[in-house]
């Protein structure tokens, strides 16, 4: 039982840290992406996705990206389309 409680706390801590980082990243991405054209955004997202695929199973990445585009796109409406489009081209 003690192990389960410790594990619970540990995972919560890790999630909290990651969520904070994601929050900062989202905001930075949001600001930085303003300076790029749709074509540049498309290529940046494709590249970033390829980095992910090196370590994580592609189907999982694809599933995650399709499910969570609202997360990473934050308030950038066009980014969602770009992510979906870039996944479609693959």
């Amino acid at each position: 039982m003690k192990e389960l409680v410790t594990k619970n706390k540990e995972i919560r801590g890790q999630i909290k840290l990651l969520k904070t980082e994601c929050f900062v990243i989202e905001n930075v991405c949001f600001k930085m992406l303003e300076f790029f054209t749709a074509e540049q955004k498309n290529s940046i997202i494709k590249d970033a996705k390829n980095v992910l695929i090196q370590d994580i199973d592609e189907s999982k990445v694809k599933e995650y990206l399709l499910k969570n585009t609202h997360h990473i796109s934050y308030s950038i409406t066009s980014l969602k389309d770009v992510v979906v489009q870039s996944l479609g081209e693959k």
Binding site: I25, C29, A48, K49
Partner: peptide, 28 residues
């Protein structure tokens, strides 16, 4: 814990993707 592990996995992918995005963006 089962649910949290799934959330952790999602957060890891999200972070990794974000970091990769920023790295690529900084280049250009």
């Amino acid at each position: 814990n089962k649910i949290l592990l799934k959330n952790l996995n999602d957060a890891q992918i999200e972070c990794k993707f974000g970091r990769a995005l920023i790295e690529r963006m900084l280049m250009q």
